[in-house]
Computed example of a mutant assay.
Amino acid sequence: MSKIVLANEGVFPITKDKHDNPLKSIPATGMKTSGTIQGEGKLAGVPSLFIRLAGCNLRCMWSLPDGSFCRCDTPYASFEAEQELQLSQEDIFTLVQHNIGNLNHVVLTGGEPMLQHRHLAMLSGRLKEELQLHLSIETNGTIFAEDVAQHIDLFSISPKLKNSNPSAQKLAAYGLKPNGPLTYHAEKRRNIEVLQKYIDFCNASGKELQLKFVVGQPNDYIEIKEEFLAHLNNWNPADILLMPLGATPEELKTTSVMVAEMAISNGWRYAPRLHIDLFGSKAGV
């Protein structure tokens, strides 16, 4: 039976195992119930379960306004995916089934979940058809796969700006050597053809879309306009979201007001990171 490679969180936050038995420890949220809230985007605040897939074809490393660096906030699903789980689709489905409770929303995230689209298509189909769940997928917008897309209700697409490119200085700061995605991130991060496929698919099918840009520099709005939106057709301004760069409350303080002003001046939407406000910077929440 084919298996899906998950990050060490797997399906989270949960309180029961695949046999419907209570787990000995409570979730990282500190709450005695399965589920958390979606912390980002249009559905911020919606009670949700998450399925985090391991592996990513990009390696985001940003610069904050003060010159310090901030890399992907889930490095264990991309940079350091050595603590991964391999679970069958049946086991993942059963974990969701036993922990979904009164929730109706499951988020497929990563890493980059579309890297495993063939196996994910079968799982998402079962979650949709048998449990009638609302499915969101969080993707970097470099891969489009209709076998998964047909089951998704909301596409949360986060195209990466130039500020995310690894540099020699950033690599040195994290003690990393250029290899794999670190060498081709800059070439792969912007895929207009794929982004247009998502927009066209959503317009044709009536599905929801958001283009969620992580913003950390005062002039990022220029790149969003000139390098992305100017090359895309039939997008809706209401679907453009700006999310402040930062993986900790302290980092978010350096970008949030700047990003809010940028969103307001361009008529776009500001996207907070509610899970960091509630739980801080940690996995499994």
Score class of each variant (00 low, 15 high):
residue 60 C to K: 00
residue 13 P to D: 09
residue 141 G to T: 01
residue 39 G to C: 14
residue 121 A to L: 06
residue 232 L to K: 00
residue 76 Y to T: 07
residue 64 L to Y: 04
residue 124 S to P: 05
residue 149 A to Q: 06
residue 256 S to L: 13
residue 142 T to F: 02
residue 269 R to L: 08
residue 278 L to W: 08
residue 39 G to E: 14
residue 36 T to Q: 08
residue 247 A to C: 08
residue 121 A to I: 03
residue 30 G to R: 10
residue 143 I to P: 01
residue 125 G to S: 14
residue 184 Y to F: 11
residue 251 E to R: 07
residue 137 I to L: 06
residue 68 S to N: 09
residue 120 L to G: 04
residue 16 K to C: 04
residue 163 N to L: 04
residue 232 L to N: 02
residue 131 L to S: 08
residue 145 A to V: 03
residue 219 N to P: 07
residue 247 A to F: 09
residue 259 V to W: 13
residue 21 N to C: 07
residue 154 L to Y: 06
residue 49 L to M: 07
residue 160 K to L: 01
residue 220 D to K: 07
residue 211 L to S: 01
residue 107 V to W: 12
residue 160 K to E: 01
residue 55 G to L: 01
residue 163 N to G: 02
residue 196 Q to L: 10
residue 279 F to A: 10
residue 193 E to I: 05
residue 155 F to D: 07
residue 79 F to M: 10
residue 108 L to E: 11
residue 83 Q to K: 14
residue 45 G to M: 15
residue 8 N to A: 15
residue 163 N to C: 04
residue 18 K to F: 05
residue 248 T to Q: 07
residue 235 W to P: 00
residue 142 T to D: 02
residue 215 V to D: 05
residue 150 Q to H: 10
residue 200 D to Y: 08
residue 193 E to Y: 14
residue 68 S to G: 06
residue 202 C to Q: 08
residue 37 I to H: 11
residue 142 T to R: 00
residue 250 E to H: 06
residue 50 F to W: 06
residue 107 V to H: 08
residue 121 A to W: 08
residue 10 G to P: 02
residue 146 E to W: 07
residue 279 F to Y: 12
residue 89 Q to E: 13
residue 70 C to M: 04
residue 235 W to D: 00
residue 15 T to C: 13
residue 179 N to H: 14
residue 131 L to I: 03
residue 200 D to R: 05
residue 94 T to Y: 09
residue 52 R to L: 04
residue 112 E to C: 04
residue 187 E to T: 03
residue 115 L to Q: 03
residue 154 L to G: 05
residue 211 L to E: 00
residue 203 N to D: 15
residue 6 L to N: 01
residue 106 V to F: 07
residue 140 N to K: 00
residue 271 A to E: 09
residue 217 Q to L: 15
residue 175 G to H: 05
residue 261 E to D: 13
residue 90 E to G: 12
residue 213 F to I: 02
residue 227 E to L: 03
residue 17 D to F: 04
residue 208 E to L: 10
residue 72 C to G: 02
residue 121 A to R: 05
residue 135 L to I: 12
